[in-house]
Design a protein around this nucleic acid. Structure first.
Length: 255
DNA sequence: ATGCCTCAGCTCCTGAGA
């Protein structure tokens, strides 16, 4: 079983690239973030023509998430039950016996800002949701754009970016608290080249200079850890003429 | 430096992203 997550920064613009990527990587589950469209605009027919089913949760202009699957997804839940939120950020479903949560974590903009406070509240609500889901689903994957680095190894310039957004102690504490529920960062189960990032700024040739961060993550529950065969960031789509600023992250499971 | 990209939208600028 193969799963992947990709923040595509507008599905309207990136649909051809997503379909092209799926043709090369026919994963069982692809979690998309920042589809940036209302539900009536979602290109379900195009995915169906390519052999994929889809569940989506969008909104106007911003945010929006989807799960693209080869087989049927069941028990679909949108956003975090019990947490009032006008932003479309989370979609959960069961695929092939695995509970999959695809999430677009808030950016937070700047420590101390209202958006940062919202990010902290959202992170606590998500943790509560993941805990609940883990109780019922031993096989669980939480993947998406976390907008948080684990530590300095995930940052191209840890000194210059110290205590800035995605790198603050508060955010990293919340990420560790998620892990403490019994999740494992699949990427770190394997050796990777130093400075393996999943996002690069569009500006100043960020990708060419590898000035990026690893903020897109795949966390797996304990029952899945022995089944993880590989976890890789695919930088190929970032080399497109009009790329997303994020690269997809792939997980290979013995399932 | 409030910018250097990129995208959406009540679109010739602004807000937001990260």
């Amino acid at each position: 079983m193969q799963l992947a997550t990709w923040n595509i920064n507008s599905l309207t613009v990136r649909l051809p690239q997503v379909l092209e990527w799926l043709a090369v990587h026919p994963v069982d589950v692809l979690a998309l973030q920042e589809i940036k469209m209302t539900d009536d605009k979602f290109p379900a027919a195009e995915f169906a023509a390519a052999g994929f089913k889809a569940h989506w949760f969008g909104q106007k202009t911003y945010n929006g998430v989807a799960l693209i699957t080869r087989q049927d997804a069941i028990d679909v839940v949108r956003n975090i039950p019990g947490f009032a939120d006008d932003m479309a950020r989370v979609i959960t479903a069961t695929v092939g016996g695995v509970r999959v949560i695809g999430a677009y974590f808030p950016n937070g903009q700047e420590p101390g800002s209202d958006k940062f406070e919202y990010k902290m509240h959202w992170l606590k609500a998500l943790r509560s949701w993941v805990r609940t889901e883990m109780e019922q689903h031993p096989r669980l994957v939480l993947m998406g754009d976390y907008n948080i680095t684990f530590d300095d190894a995930d940052v191209w310039d840890p000194i210059g970016l110290k205590d800035t957004i995605h790198c603050t102690d508060e955010e990293r504490y919340q990420l560790r608290a998620l892990v403490a529920l019994g999740l494992t960062d699949a990427h770190r189960l394997f050796p990777h080249a130093p400075k393996s990032f999943s996002w690069w700024d569009y500006r100043d040739f960020g990708f060419r200079r590898n000035r990026g961060m690893r903020i897109d993550h795949i966390l797996v529950s304990a029952a899945l850890v022995p089944l993880v065969k590989a976890c890789e960031i695919d930088k190929t789509p970032r080399k497109n003429e009009r790329p997303s600023d994020h690269a997809p992250v792939l997980l290979d499971l013995s399932l």
